[in-house]
Simulated assay, not measured.
Amino acid sequence: MSHHFVLSDYENVQFTDAGGFKPGDCRIRVFIGQNQANVPVELVKALLPFGPDADLLRISGTGPNALDFHIAYYIGRWAMEFPGSSFTIISKDTGFDPLIRHLATHNIVCKRVHKLAVAASPSTAVATTPPAAAAKKAVPAKKAASKNVVVTIMPASHTKPAVTAAEANTESRVTEALKRLKGMNSSKPTRTATLQSTIKSFFKPALNDKQLASVIQGLADSKKIVISGTKVSYSL
């Protein structure tokens, strides 16, 4: 089951309400630094109606980007545990943006906003820009630091390109040539010139030079033959 996770970098952005979110809208996780001794009572009261969908997570350890790495870990964990989930990071830290771009290459939808209220705003809904264009769009550092920043990068499309007629013909010829060569047992050609003439004899009408080269290259790419100079060896 997929969810919308809202992950707050509370060292970077503090808030005391639910920012317009209502119970059932999302799962809120507020990450608190090890040295942040207290959180406002107002924040706790605002999260109580969310029940188990809201939690305060105090990180372990200190150091540069310690909290950021915790958020990155949980995004990866929950993306695997709940396939199809989306993520919103509440932070002004542009260091998250390379992570967001990387997640997009793995078809994981993630965005960064500067405060919780922006995350809940309809204007920050996932963009309808074509996926490939959105994934390639870079976010300038200065713009990412602006007051109303929302960084949203959609996953790139991974549609497999169609196989052309020429490629299909080459594949079928490689399969046929491989079948014929296997049947030749010990009489397989051991020199490239002989191999070329032998493969030509397999097909009617005869292959032209380009078609013949494609078949031989296909056999080599599949590691069924090894050409070394003028000699040919087989692994059929």
Rank of each mutant, 00 (worst) to 15 (best):
I108N: 03
P52N: 07
T129M: 14
I90T: 12
M184D: 11
A127C: 15
S91E: 06
A125V: 09
R191L: 06
F5S: 10
T190K: 10
L195Q: 03
V149S: 12
A133T: 15
C26R: 11
K204V: 08
V41A: 10
N65D: 12
T230Y: 05
H70Y: 08
N148T: 07
K147E: 03
E42F: 12
K160S: 07
N65H: 10
K231Q: 06
V151G: 01
R112S: 06
N169K: 11
S172H: 11
C110S: 03
R191E: 04
R180M: 13
A117D: 12
N65V: 10
A37C: 03
S233V: 04
V109E: 14
G76W: 04
T16M: 12
Q36P: 02
P131G: 14
A165P: 06
T105P: 12
S123L: 11
I216A: 00
V109S: 14
D25N: 14
S228T: 07
G19W: 05
S60C: 11
V149T: 15
H102I: 05
K223D: 01
V30A: 11
R112I: 10
T190M: 08
V109H: 11
N38Y: 02
K92E: 10
L56K: 05
I199T: 04
I216Q: 00
L178T: 09
T94W: 03
A18N: 12
W78I: 01
I216D: 02
N38L: 08
G63Y: 06
A213T: 04
A18Y: 09
T192M: 15
P131H: 13
V39W: 08
P130Q: 11
P130H: 15
F15C: 14
A165H: 09
T230S: 14
T159D: 00
A79N: 01
K115W: 13
D93V: 07
R77K: 00
I71Q: 02
C26N: 10
V139D: 07
P23G: 13
V6S: 09
N107F: 07
V39H: 12
V232G: 04
L236Q: 03
A119T: 06
F5Y: 13
S235V: 01
T198Q: 01
H70I: 01
K188S: 07
S91N: 04
F5M: 07
S123Y: 10
L212Q: 00
N38E: 03
T62I: 15
A138M: 11
